[in-house]
């Protein structure tokens, strides 16, 4: 009986405490990150836009074996045009990754037997055109050189 009669008072105290807790936050500093000027440091294993690794001689490491295609969980995301060069080795004539379908799982990177494909730290991929999100081989090469300049990935060999 005693407890029930005290309930309104306890409620009022709880309400007041709640308001006090919220009010305290006025004096705290905002935690907001001023995004376009400052950016959060990314994790080492962050998976961003793809890039094809180019060696010192300007050649792709990719041999167009098609492993990435097979392990990709999305449907027809990676398309490779295979071709033989003079020495009888396969190389990709064209290599497209459709970002409209890619889910950035990183399977292609993990399963690549030659380490020929990596993921950079680029995540600002928004674009006005859908076709621009279909990365062809030149874009992928450029991504690699760009990210080496920005030092977001370590140069291989």
């Amino acid at each position: 009986m005693m407890k029930k009669s005290l309930k309104p008072f306890r409620d009022i105290i709880a309400l007041a405490l709640g308001h006090l807790t919220v009010f305290k936050h006025v004096f705290k500093r905002p935690v907001t990150l001023e995004y376009p000027e400052k950016k959060l440091p990314l994790n080492d294993n962050f998976r961003g836009e793809h890039a094809l690794v180019v060696d010192n001689e300007g050649k792709l490491l990719c041999t167009a074996c098609g492993t990435c295609q097979r392990v990709c969980p999305s449907f027809e995301t990676i398309e490779i045009e295979k071709e033989k060069n003079e020495s009888g080795k396969f190389y990709p004539k064209n290599y497209t990754i459709d970002l409209n379908k890619c889910i950035f799982c990183g399977n292609c990177v993990q399963y690549c037997p030659f380490g020929a494909i990596i993921m950079t730290k680029e995540y600002e991929l928004a674009d006005e055109k859908k076709s621009a999100l279909k990365l062809d081989i030149n874009t992928l090469k450029k991504n690699y050189s760009d990210s080496i300049i920005k030092k977001t990935v370590k140069s291989k060999r």
Binding site: H25, V26, R29, P30, T32, E34
Partner: peptide
């Protein structure tokens, strides 16, 4: 309201 939620 932003200050209450530690926003800017």
């Amino acid at each position: 309201l932003a200050f209450f939620t530690q926003r800017k």
